[in-house]
C-alpha cells in the first residue's frame, strides 16, 4: 500500500484546476448577492419622473419635492435675488459652471441663473461636500456666518455656503456647485423633474 511514487505534477495540476474552477464558482455565486444591492424595480419605479405644479409657490418661497428619494428644491426667486447673482461671481469657485462644476447641470441650465426660466431654480438639494441637505436662507441680510449675505444656502453639517443659484462660495469645504437635475416645463405652471426638454423645443 502507498508504495507507488506520487505523481506530483498530476497532483499539482488537479489541485490548481479544482481551485480555479471552485474559485470561479465562488466568485460567480457572489455576483447575485452583489447585484442584489442595486436599485430594485420598486426603487427604479419610484425614480420615475415627478411632475409638480408651481401655482402655489410664491415669490421668494422654496418647495422641496422628492425625486428618486432625493430632495429637489424648487424656488421662485425674487428679482432682488436674481439681481444679486452676477455680483457674487468674484466670490465663487466656479461662477460660470464650466470648470469643476461643468457636469453639475444639463447644458440647458449652464448659465448665470443655472435654470431654464430665470426665476425658477430647480436643484438637487444635496451639499457637494458630504451629502447633507443645506438650509435655504433666502433673506438678504447679514448672517452670523456671512456679514455680507445675499441669500442662498447654508449647510449645517460643515458650513458650506452657496448662492441663490446653488453656486458654491470660495473658502468652504464643498468643492462644486449643487446639482441641477434634468427637468422641463410641461406648461407655464407645471414642471417635470427627471426628463429634460425635448431636443429643439
Amino acid at each position: 500500500m502507498a508504495n507507488e511514487v506520487v505523481d506530483h505534477g498530476r497532483r499539482r495540476f488537479l489541485t490548481s484546476a479544482t481551485a480555479v474552477v471552485g474559485g470561479v464558482g465562488i466568485v460567480s455565486a457572489a455576483v447575485p448577492f452583489i447585484k442584489s444591492w442595486e436599485p430594485s424595480a420598486r426603487a427604479k419605479a419610484a425614480g420615475a419622473p415627478v411632475t409638480q405644479s408651481l401655482k402655489k409657490i410664491e415669490s421668494g418661497q422654496q418647495l422641496i419635492v422628492a425625486w428618486r428619494s432625493l430632495p429637489v428644491f424648487i424656488v421662485n426667486r425674487t428679482p432682488e435675488q436674481l439681481a444679486a447673482l452676477p455680483k457674487q461671481d468674484p466670490r465663487l469657485v466656479d461662477p460660470k459652471s464650466d470648470g469643476s462644476s461643468s457636469e453639475q447641470q444639463p447644458k440647458y441650465a449652464q448659465n448665470e441663473t443655472r435654470s431654464i426660466k430665470p426665476e425658477w431654480l430647480v436643484m438637487v438639494g444635496i451639499c457637494t461636500h458630504l451629502g447633507c441637505v443645506p438650509n435655504y436662507v433666502g433673506e438678504m441680510k447679514p448672517e452670523p456666518f456671512d456679514p455680507n449675505w445675499q441669500g442662498g444656502y447654508y449647510c449645517p453639517c460643515h458650513h458650506s455656503r452657496y448662492d441663490m443659484a446653488g453656486r458654491v462660495y470660495r473658502g468652504v469645504p464643498a468643492p462644486k456647485n449643487m446639482q441641477i437635475p434634468p427637468y422641463h416645463f410641461v406648461d407655464d405652471t407645471t414642471v417635470q423633474i427627471g426628463v429634460g426638454p425635448k431636443e429643439g423645443a
Partner: peptide, 22 residues
Amino acid sequence: LFLALFTMLAYLLKKEYWKDVH
C-alpha cells in the same frame, strides 16, 4: 453544467490523493 465540471475535477483530485491511502 458548471457544478458537474467541478464535481468531476474534485473526484479526480480525491482519487489522486487517495492513492496514498489505498
